[in-house]
Design a protein around this nucleic acid. Structure first.
Length: 267
DNA sequence: ATGCCTCAGCTCCTGAGA
């Protein structure tokens, strides 16, 4: 099975690109089975479920006007859908979870998938940074329980956090700025400490591999980017991971999202 | 560098993203 995550920066604008990308994967003989989308930027009533269903995908979505919004697309049924972080009151639509495959997530063949759009945080010391920290605390404590109930779990999405300097095009110039602060990285490490692993780094990657490039100043052409979209896999899934890579092709489209997909293959 | 680009919206500017 192949799992992917993609921050599309408006599904209203990017739907044709999503459909094209999914079709291209299928034509290449590597269909994407589950795709997590972030930044839909549309309300639930505007979600294009018919077009996606016609393309062979069942959907679960949690939308919001103007900002945020997340969805899961799957070729197999999505079961036990949960929106946002239970117990954490949040007006922002940032998380959607479901079980894919047989069973309820604790079975041998099913996987519990959590798709997430982590808060940006804007700048250290801001109200939005404080919200990011609160949100990360809530996510971690909820996932601690989820991993007990669902040992086979993937956490994928736009984390808005880099692991280390290798994830940043200019680590000196961007030191301690948003996505690169010690506090954010400690939160990311705390997720790893729950029993999750960074799928991409389990496989050899080209140097300067990023998932986001600024629209401004020819960021993509100059490869001035950051790796802030991740797929974390639970310990129980690790023996089954067979590949993980960033697909830069969609970032070369006309009117691209500023993010590009990360794809994980699980045997 | 309070800049660059893109998107949504009570749209001809502003807020937010990262």
């Amino acid at each position: 099975m192949r799992f992917a995550t993609w921050n599309v920066n408006s599904l209203g604008v990017r739907l044709p690109q999503v459909l094209d990308w999914l079709a291209a994967q299928e034509q290449a003989g590597q269909p994407v089975d589950v795709l997590a989308l972030q930044e839909l930027k549309l309300t639930d009533d505007k979600f294009p479920h018919e077009a996606l269903q016609a393309a062979g995908y069942q959907c679960a979505w949690h939308g919001q006007k103007t900002y945020n919004g997340v969805a899961l697309l799957s070729r197999l049924p999505l079961q036990a859908v949960v929106k946002n972080i239970p117990g954490f009151a949040d007006e922002q639509a940032r998380v959607i979870s479901a079980t894919v495959g047989e069973g309820d997530g604790d079975g041998t063949h099913s996987v519990r998938v959590v798709g997430a759009y982590f808060p940006n945080g804007q700048a250290p010391g801001s109200d939005k940074f404080a919200y990011k920290m609160d949100w990360l605390n809530a996510l971690r404590e909820w996932l601690r329980q989820e991993l007990v109930q669902h040992p086979r779990l993937l956490l994928m999405g736009d984390y808005n956090i880099t692991f280390d300097d290798a994830d940043v095009w200019d680590p000196e110039g961007l030191r301690d700025t948003i996505h690169c602060t010690r506090e954010e990285r400690e939160h990311l490490q705390a997720l790893i400490d729950l029993g999750l692993a960074d799928s991409l780094r389990r496989f050899e990657q080209p140097p300067k591999t990023y998932t986001w490039w600024d629209y401004r100043d020819l960021g993509f052409r100059r490869n001035r980017g950051m790796r802030i979209d991740h797929i974390l896999a639970s310990t129980a899934l690790l023996p089954h991971l067979s590949a993980c890579a960033v697909d830069k092709a969609p970032r070369k489209n006309e009117r691209p999202s500023d993010h590009t997909p990360v794809v994980l293959t699980v045997a």
